[in-house]
Design a binder for these strands. Sequence first.
DNA 1: GTTGCGATGTATCGGACCGATACATCGGCC
DNA 2: GGCCGATGTATCGGTCCGATACATCGCAAC
Lengths: 199, 199
Amino acid sequence: MLELAILGLLHESPMHGYELRKQLTTKLGAFRAAISYGSLYPTLRRLQTDGWISEGAPPAGMPASPDEVPLLTGKRGRVVYTITAEGKERFQELLTAAGPETYDSEAGFGVHFAFFARTDPATRLRILEGRRRRVEERREGMRDVLSRAAERLDAYTLELQRHGLDACEREVRWLEELIANERNGTTPQPPSADPERSS
Amino acid sequence: MLELAILGLLHESPMHGYELRKQLTTKLGAFRAAISYGSLYPTLRRLQTDGWISEGAPPAGMPASPDEVPLLTGKRGRVVYTITAEGKERFQELLTAAGPETYDSEAGFGVHFAFFARTDPATRLRILEGRRRRVEERREGMRDVLSRAAERLDAYTLELQRHGLDACEREVRWLEELIANERNGTTPQPPSADPERSS
DNA sequence: GTTGCGATGTATCGGACCGATACATCGGCC
DNA sequence: GGCCGATGTATCGGTCCGATACATCGCAAC
């Protein structure tokens, strides 16, 4: 989960922990709240020992975009992380290997979706459909509760079920739309002016 | 979290673990997916050593409703848990002491909301307003992203933000409505005794 | 100039919760 | 009689969170 998210962000640009967390929070803010440092730093360490990322600025070849954002200024005390070539492979591998755990959790789906621009069409479709199935199941469960046991629940529990059901129906409709687009190839492609940096 | 949920359910009726999990899943299904046994059983053990619940059928006084649901049949191998008097106090205490952690997480809010029928009006209002504030903050964050950095995001990330924003706006509206009802006293009370606004 | 203060930044620890797994029993159905 | 899916209890490793502790930087007030 976090591994995929971190690799994905570092794929775009090298970064230090603090900035990483901020980007994580805004980019994935729709589906999960915020990433804790208590998971971020240990994960960074693990990724480093696994060889997916390396400490320090990129190997002098890459001209590290001089953006307005203060990303990789290796100032005092800051530790800048850069994704390695193996890390990029690992990223693609994780992107494609999208099992049930991908759509089972909100966070899992959110992270994968956030990197759909780098995911191949077949995998995109598979994830969207898996997610839809999952949400439909939840929806059916709530419908059953509401139709079969409504009179045995208090008003608040009832209201909670209704709200949840509504949210599920909405998400299913959203997913249907995305799936339809995906099949048509209508989906706005990522700015294809950027054809694969390396690998 | 789990502690509150378990005490709340056992407050309604004694139960064994399996049934507890099923009820947990349906009652709180709107906001959190499912409870794992890996958290349920250890928590049950802890609640027991803390004295909030006890193993075995109720102390012979309570006539354990002979419902159609097979709840407390102390058959072979089953362990039935019953809430103690101290447990009921603890439950009320947890219900009322609703700090920020209550509305920070989906699950926390969901659990508290599910037991609103047993929560006093002032606490209900406090929780609803805290939650609203929290969701509004998330909403503002996403609005900023969409208005300030939309052109720098790919189509999928954009769509994710839009979907998240929509969900937030919807939840805020839902909360507004609940808060308004709460202030009017329009909210249906638990079935106990409410001759004023019965339907 | 120095003092204080909020934003930036790195790091760890205990605990909550999950996912997989193992295993035992029960009620039918063939 | 045997098989199988529901029911039922339990544990283990791992992921992630929340609180906390510091250290530094820019800057404004005095």
